[in-house]
């Protein structure tokens, strides 16, 4: 049993209206030191079998096909013990 974390973020050049909304709300709440916000998603996948390259490759396939939109998003994968 392994757990793969998939972090999905909009590519840096893609407009992120949600992040901007969080930024302006931060300022309204008095967190004036926050100068930028980008919002993303995190997935935790529980996977049968050992935490190895094969599991990671499958998770990457899934991320590309379902979890992220590769046209406008990028993602990274990692294991947790």
């Amino acid at each position: 049993m392994a757990r793969v974390i998939v972090d999905v973020m909009l590519k840096s050049e893609i407009h992120d209206p949600q992040g901007e909304a969080v930024l302006s709300a931060s300022h309204r709440l008095g967190f004036g030191n926050v100068t930028g916000v980008r919002q993303g998603k995190r997935f935790e996948l529980d996977i049968d079998g050992p935490a190895g390259d094969a599991a990671l490759a499958r998770a990457e396939e899934l991320a590309r096909e379902l979890l992220a939109n590769p046209v406008i998003e990028e993602f990274s994968l990692s294991f947790v013990e």
């Binding site: 909009l10 590519k11 050049e13 893609i14 407009h15 992120d16 209206p17 901007e20 909304a21 046209v71 406008i72």
Partner: peptide, 12 residues
């Protein structure tokens, strides 16, 4: 190289 995808913000 720049993205050709525009992202809309209906609230704006």
């Amino acid at each position: 190289k720049r993205p050709s995808v525009q992202v809309g913000d209906p609230f704006m």
